[in-house]
Design a protein around this nucleic acid. Structure first.
Length: 835
RNA sequence: GCCGGUGUGAUGGAAUGGUAGACGUGACGGACUCAAAAUCCGUUCCUGGCAACAGGGUGUGGGUUCGAGUCCCACCACUGGCACCA
């Protein structure tokens, strides 16, 4: 009988749909396990091969957890609001809701095709009013507690999407999504005060089991630095406050710099004798995109503010003030004290403007380059009461002095900015706020939630930066919930990160219309035990959702500080580079390609893209080889955490393996007990596969299963042996296993599906061969190998080694100085010539 | 510039400091077949040798160790993140 994967997969998917073996039941008296994958954005292109990697891995983990006796919740949903859908809708004149609906239908078909054990009854959709009602509700709770606020400030503006971006969405000065330049623009925006949680977001990383690089990246992004805040007096009366991590160098501060956007610049207009020049520079800096500002990295520019001087508080000296765009308005106080002797940027600037460079830490040649070491190499000089101290001693000494003088104090600063939460777009959650002329901003009363997104004809972004909703006057004009007077609705919508900032909680209780999640469900299922997702979300979704969860914890809505107990991350799946130098079987083909493209690529793998024609569609793979092969291959492709390159050829290996398993049915002896000859191999494999799954090493788990199957071919097997194999293979290739399980009579024997069996137990004593092959080394070099019983004493192992023919030869004229025995592995004899 | 990661056969990749290359592709040989595919059985790191065997081998150069792909130091290459963050 042939392995007819298409029929088998269809049959079992229908049965699972009917019997719901993956349903998660809240409150069961079993250990719970919450496995989570990042829910997909339902794009028009459908599932790509990047999705099945994390999905299949977590599917395998949760299937094993079920077999381990856990009450498993493994949910799925759709992160359905977002720009690509809206842009597609605009281009094709189809309503985004319709586009989303169709895309979700396609995604659902594909996910079911791959046989994932999702609890489909818990499926959520962030663009469903029953879902975003609670997204809006959480926003209102934040507003009530002062964490959501409206502020006019300089924000990132994507010139192509015509939308405001969060800092996290700007990559190298361009829009993360479309690649267009990002400029700074003054806008009034809703903000979320994530910075109030900065310290806790760092501290609580210590209590969670995240892979280290995720923790490091989050810490770096939050960017905590400790220093001091210092107040400088100026000749026009206003005090200038700066942040510095090097208060020890205060005696070396020879000038000051303000960001061009600093409010004092305008305030001092009347005092400035070169206002025209200053105004021109400010104007020019504002026009530059972040990218351009960054590009000119090395070239410092700036203008002196003539007519105003600052006074260095430690020595009373008057020092000049500049504006320069190397000082950022968004960090610290938007102003710095410049210490050219000990800061590279200040040094560059001082050289350019011929400003004095005063050495205050000895150890370098500050006329040649800035001396920036912060350790104990340098000793303070030219610094009054700090002279003779090391930098480490001088920092606290200076902070103490500043505190005594009441002109400074210790201060912690973060790179993390508050989260810009408004988007001038249609396809997002409406922000449930109303602006009343008399009462100001008033929240939409909670009993009026959800505030449903109105159905509009046209959702083009406007050129003036207003949301498309602004044109909907019927919807915009409303009455103030507070005073009943005329008022206007907020027309901006939430960013696409809003819905995903709490979705794992909704899965716990998805149909609740009284609360976002019942306390019972949350206490039973929370926190997520294992969350796998992409590294690209480390400083976006992962950070945002931790912030929301902590807020919900603070208002008593959830019972854990952190949403996810464990976080792992998968590597990307790359496509084969069609222009790779090694991709050609004949020299002619290669020459033809070189002629066509000039040269060939040196890298064999690149991101999949339509233009390169190397995109792999899961539909095609399933069509040709079946879902079980697809699942197996995507797990076998390599180390889960590393990038991997898709290979059409290698897929065949996985299919071949499944064929070989299938054909074992013809070879199995009609005996339901485990055979003696395979007992050790089976026990070893149970141990290996189990621990490999728990450690996300699916590739080696599969290799172990392959090894076992090869041994079955070599030595023969019983039905009892096959039964064990099927249970181990069940999480990987569930369709084929169930079919074989039924055909071989195991289903009838146990009265349940293979996936419902208990995970096989191994006997430690039976995981080792009775007779072991041990390596024999002489002076650390491999010389021979011996066969000894597994429990042999060290002395007898050495004795046996010495009787080995090859070893005897090496021992002639030598004596043993030392022996090292590693149990079951090797024996090393250290020899030296006899005297 | 700062913070990570990686470097192993033709190839994807395995190896708690303990026999480097498991497992899979590909290639080669054999069986089956009129033939091919599929399947099954072998071989496949390099050099020398008919062979037994000997020597070499995990980016480069050092070091620690009885023993290093693995640990330490320096360097090279690729790669991910951040980047004028005071």
């Amino acid at each position: 009988m042939k392995y007819d994967f298409a029929a088998i997969e269809k049959k079992w998917q229908a049965r699972w749909e009917e019997e719901k073996p993956y349903a998660a039941v809240t409150g069961l008296d079993k250990p719970k396990f919450y496995g989570l994958i990042e829910f997909p954005y339902p794009s028009g292109a459908g599932l790509h091969v990047g999705h099945p990697r994390p999905f299949t891995a977590m599917d395998i983990i949760t299937r094993k957890k079920r077999m381990d006796g856990c009450n498993v919740i493994f949910p799925i949903g759709y992160d359905a609001f977002g720009l690509p859908t809206e842009n597609y809708a605009i281009k094709n004149h189809i309503h985004p809701a319709k586009v989303t609906h169709d895309n979700i239908a396609n995604f659902t078909r594909q996910l079911k095709m791959l046989g994932y054990g999702f609890d489909w009854d818990r499926c959520v959709n962030t663009s469903d009013p029953n879902y975003y009602k609670w997204t809006q509700w959480i926003f209102l709770q934040m507003y009530k507690r002062g964490l959501a606020y409206k502020a006019t400030m300089s924000v990132n503006w994507c010139t192509s999407c015509k939308v405001v971006l969060a800092n996290e969405e700007v990559v190298e000065g361009v829009c993360e999504r479309c690649g267009a330049p990002v400029i700074r623009k003054e806008k009034s925006q809703w903000m979320l005060a994530i910075t109030k949680y900065a310290q806790r977001l760092i501290d609580d990383l210590d209590d969670v089991d995240y892979i280290e690089r995720v923790k490091i990246q989050q810490r770096n992004w939050i960017g905590r630095s400790t220093g001091a805040q210092v107040t400088f007096k100026t000749t026009v009366g206003d005090d200038l406050v700066v942040f510095t991590t090097r208060p020890d160098t205060l005696f070396g501060a020879t000038y000051m710099v303000l960001a061009p956007e600093h409010p004092y610049v305008k305030k001092w207009k009347e005092n400035l004798t070169n206002w025209d020049e200053v105004a021109a520079y400010v104007e020019q800096a504002g026009r530059k995109s972040d990218f351009e500002r960054g590009e000119l990295n090395k070239e410092k520019s700036g203008v002196r503010l003539n007519g105003v001087m600052a006074i260095n508080p430690v020595n009373g000296k008057e020092i000049p003030i500049f504006i320069a765009d190397y000082v950022l308005i968004t960090y610290g106080t938007g102003a710095i004290m410049a210490v050219p002797a000990h800061d590279e940027r200040d040094w560059d600037f001082a050289k350019m403007f011929n400003l004095p460079i005063v050495e205050v830490v000895k150890g370098g040649n500050v006329q040649e380059e800035a001396f920036t070491l912060k350790d104990d190499t340098g000793i303070m000089v030219n610094s009054g009461f700090l002279d003779g101290m090391t930098v480490k001693q001088a920092i606290p000494a200076m902070i103490n002095w500043l505190a005594e003088q009441k002109i400074g104090e210790q201060k912690v600063n973060y790179k993390l900015r508050d989260w810009v939460f408004s988007r001038q777009r249609y396809w997002g959650e409406p922000i449930p706020m109303i602006n009343c002329e008399k009462c100001g901003w008033v929240p939409v009363p909670e009993d009026q939630l959800p505030l449903v997104l109105p159905n509009v004809e046209s959702y083009e972004p406007t050129d003036d930066g207003e949301s498309p909703l602004a044109k909907m006057t019927d919807w915009v004009n409303t009455t103030c919930p507070c005073c009943g007077g005329p008022a206007k609705r907020e027309t901006d919508t939430m960013p696409n990160w809003a819905g995903s900032s709490w979705y794992w909680l909704r899965y716990m209780d998805p149909h609740n219309d009284k609360a976002f999640c019942s306390p019972e469900a949350e206490q039973y299922w929370g926190p997520v035990d294992w969350y796998n997702g992409g590294m690209e979300h480390t400083t976006l979704h992962l950070l945002y959702s931790r912030f929301w969860h902590k807020f919900l914890y603070d208002i008593g809505a959830v019972h854990t500080k952190e949403p996810y107990a464990k976080r792992t991350s998968h590597g990307m799946i790359l496509g084969q580079n069609p222009y790779y130098i090694g991709n050609f079987s004949t020299e002619e083909e290669k020459q033809a390609m070189i002629e066509k493209h000039g040269s060939l690529a040196l890298r064999s793998s690149v991101k999949m893209s339509k233009s390169l024609g190397n995109v792999v569609n899961p539909d095609d793979v399933v069509q040709s080889y079946g879902a079980d092969t697809m699942r197996l291959y995507i797990m076998f492709i390599g180390d889960f955490e590393k990038t991997a390159t898709w290979s059409d050829d290698a897929v065949k290996g996985s299919k071949r393996f499944l064929d070989r398993v299938w054909n074992l049915m013809d070879r199995a002896e009609d005996n339901f007990s485990i055979s003696e000859k395979n007992e050790v191999s089976i026990n070893k494999t149970i141990k290996k596969v189990g621990s490999d799954i728990d450690n996300l090493k699916m590739n080696t788990a599969i290799a172990a299963l392959m090894t076992l199957v090869n041994e079955f071919y070599d030595k023969g097997l019983t039905k009892g042996d096959l039964e064990q194999l099927l249970m181990l293979l069940s999480p990987f290739a569930p369709h084929m296993v169930e079919e074989m399980w039924e055909l071989e009579g195991f289903a009838a024997k146990h009265g349940k599906m293979a996936m419902q069996m208990s995970w096989p137990q191994y006997d430690e004593t039976k995981t080792v061969d009775a007779v072991k092959e041990m390596a024999v080394q002489i002076n650390g070099k491999l010389r021979s190998s011996i066969r000894v019983s597994a429990d042999a004493e060290d002395e007898s192992v050495v004795a046996i080694a010495c009787t080995d023919e090859k070893i005897k030869r090496y021992m002639e004229g030598m004596e043993i100085v030392k022996t090292i025995v590693v149990k079951g592995r090797l024996v090393n004899l250290i020899l030296k010539p006899k005297k």
